[in-house]
Structure formats: C-alpha cells, structure tokens
Amino acid sequence: MSDLNKDINMAEAPEGHSGAGFFATSFEKVIGLARANSLWPLPFATSCCGIEFMATMGATYDISRFGSERPSFSPRQADILLVMGTIAKKMGPVVKQVYEQMAEPRWVVAVGACATSGGIFDSYSVLQGIDRVVPVDVYVPGCPPRPEQILDGLMRVQDLAKNESLRRRNSPEYQALLASYNIK
C-alpha cells in the first residue's frame, strides 16, 4: 500500500476565502472541479489508437486515476467523445450523430493523426480530420499517441472543464459554433 501514497498532484481545492470554519468559493469552480474529475469517456475507437486507449485503461497507465475509467458507450452518459482512429467519409455522419446525442457539457478529443488530420491516409475515402464534422476541443498528435499523450489530452480537457462557465451551452459563441457545424 505504501506505493500508493507517493506524491500525486491531487485536484487542487478551488481558491476561496478560507477563514475559521468558513470556506466560500465560487460555485462554478466547484462544479468545474467535479466535472474535471469525473470525465466519462465515450471511446469512439475505430482503429490503432483504440488499441492504445486499451493500454491507457490498463494497469500501467490507469486512466481511472483521473476518474475516467467508466467508459460510457451510451452517448447520453458520456462527457468526452474520444475519437480514436481513422474516420472514413462513411463514418463521418455517425460521429456527428453520436456527438448530437451527447448531453451537455460535452467535449471532443481527437486522438491520433487520423482523427485529427487524416494522417497518412490522404485518400478519397478518409475524412481529413474530424473537425470537419464536429467541433474538436483538444487535439492529440501521434500515430498512435503514446498513452502518456492520451492522458495529456485528458488533462487538457480537465483544464477546460475547470475553467468553464456553467452556462457555456447558452452562450452565443457556443451556439454559433454548433450552428457552423450544422448541429441543431
């Protein structure tokens, strides 16, 4: 058990005014923190990067340390859409559909060269990056990325989640973004 108590950067307590028995902080921060530490991924794993995601879930890298080990294959329950692997044009609409089915707040991580930009598959059948279909929040390069890089991407999303307004969904910028992708 001793090796469990090594130095780990825990989620920092949000900044607040602490006094004797008094701790106030912005409510948004707390919820942001909660969201950041409970990001349930929807692994949209089509190819090689999906295999590396398995390694990320495995004991050596253990994505559960970030509270993300419960893969929700149902888009309704997922918080981040991890698109891993080549998305062909045939698959593009499916990705969009999955994204539409997700409940807010939702984030999209494009993992690996294929999902981010098509990679070596500059061919007639492959979508050159999923940001043509859904808005992408974090890009993870690599083909496939090492699990460290996937975790990096996850931590980037955590940063996003921590600093995001609860009402992001209602903001005009966000609506405009969705509209630009033709998502209702």
Binding site: T46, S47, G85, T86, I87, A88, K90, M91, V94, I120, F121, D122, S123, Y124, S125, V126
Partner: peptide, 22 residues
C-alpha cells in the same frame, strides 16, 4: 467499410519503402 482507407490505392502512389507504415 466504416474505416475504409484505400490502402491499395495509396500503395500505388508510394515508393516501395514507404508502404511499410501502411
């Protein structure tokens, strides 16, 4: 065909040694 990537077509456009990554 949901991840059809056209390997065979790409292979026709790549020098022999560049097909290994495919």
């Amino acid at each position: 065909g949901y991840i059809h990537r056209a390997f065979e077509k790409i292979a026709e456009r790549r020098p022999f040694y560049q097909i290994t990554p495919l």
